[in-house]
Computed example of a mutant assay.
Amino acid sequence: MLLTRALLRQVAVALAVASLAASSAGADEGFPFGFEMTLDALPQAGSKRIPTLEIGDNGEAKLDLWCKTGTGQFSVAGNTVIFVPGQLQDRDCPPARAQADDDLVSALSEATTWRRRGDQVSFVGTKPLRFHINTN
């Protein structure tokens, strides 16, 4: 009888710990609503800027690219993602940076799936993109 109670207690504790670990892992691996991320890329020649993407709790996005800024909207269902860009504001960009910004927005718009591993978020489409969640 004591052995059965001890065993049941151990099983209950193990289930509670496993449940807590699973919920923590799921929260860490969920879509990064409410976070700012930086593109895994080098700055362009003559600039120190690297594109960032801030995604609000409802999927609204602010883009601060190599030269342009703008908005957009993310919709997520499971690992499927849809990004709809808003209007971009041009800040008298050199042609190469303006094209790089347009290419980045196009790649985000063509992404069909996403995945997250820790602080790394990937958008997969015709051109895969990888972002790092800013943790500082």
Rank of each mutant, 00 (worst) to 15 (best):
F31K: 02
F31Q: 03
F31M: 04
F31T: 04
F31H: 04
P32F: 02
P32V: 02
P32A: 03
P32W: 02
F33C: 06
F33N: 08
G34T: 09
G34E: 11
G34C: 12
F35W: 13
F35Y: 15
E36W: 00
E36L: 05
E36I: 00
T38R: 08
T38A: 06
L39R: 00
D40A: 14
D40L: 11
A41L: 05
P43N: 09
P43I: 09
Q44V: 13
Q44Y: 10
Q44P: 09
A45N: 09
A45D: 08
A45Y: 07
A45V: 08
S47R: 03
S47F: 07
R49E: 13
I50A: 10
I50P: 09
I50M: 09
P51L: 08
T52M: 09
T52I: 11
T52V: 10
T52Q: 13
L53M: 13
L53I: 09
L53R: 05
E54N: 11
E54T: 15
I55E: 00
I55G: 00
G56E: 02
G56A: 11
D57I: 02
D57Y: 01
D57R: 10
D57M: 10
D57H: 06
D57E: 15
N58R: 15
N58V: 12
N58L: 15
N58S: 15
G59R: 01
G59Q: 07
E60H: 14
A61P: 08
A61K: 08
A61D: 02
A61R: 04
K62R: 11
L63Q: 07
L63E: 05
D64S: 11
D64E: 05
L65M: 09
W66C: 08
W66K: 07
W66T: 05
W66Q: 09
C67E: 00
C67F: 04
C67P: 08
C67D: 05
C67T: 02
K68M: 13
K68D: 02
K68Y: 01
T69I: 02
G70A: 02
T71E: 12
T71I: 04
G72F: 02
G72W: 01
Q73N: 14
F74A: 06
F74C: 06
F74Y: 14
S75G: 06
S75I: 00
S75A: 10
S75F: 00
S75H: 07
S75Y: 00
S75N: 09
V76L: 12
G78V: 12
G78I: 10
N79M: 12
N79Y: 10
N79G: 08
T80L: 11
V81H: 01
V81L: 02
V81G: 03
I82D: 14
I82C: 05
I82V: 14
F83T: 00
V84L: 13
V84C: 06
G86S: 04
G86F: 04
Q87G: 09
Q87T: 14
Q87L: 13
Q87D: 12
Q87F: 10
Q87P: 10
Q87R: 12
L88R: 04
L88M: 15
L88Q: 15
L88V: 12
L88A: 14
L88G: 11
Q89G: 11
Q89R: 12
Q89Y: 07
Q89P: 01
D90V: 13
D90W: 12
D90K: 15
D90S: 15
R91A: 12
R91Y: 14
R91G: 07
D92T: 06
D92L: 08
D92I: 01
C93W: 03
C93S: 05
C93N: 06
C93E: 03
C93D: 00
P94Q: 06
P94I: 07
P94G: 06
P95F: 03
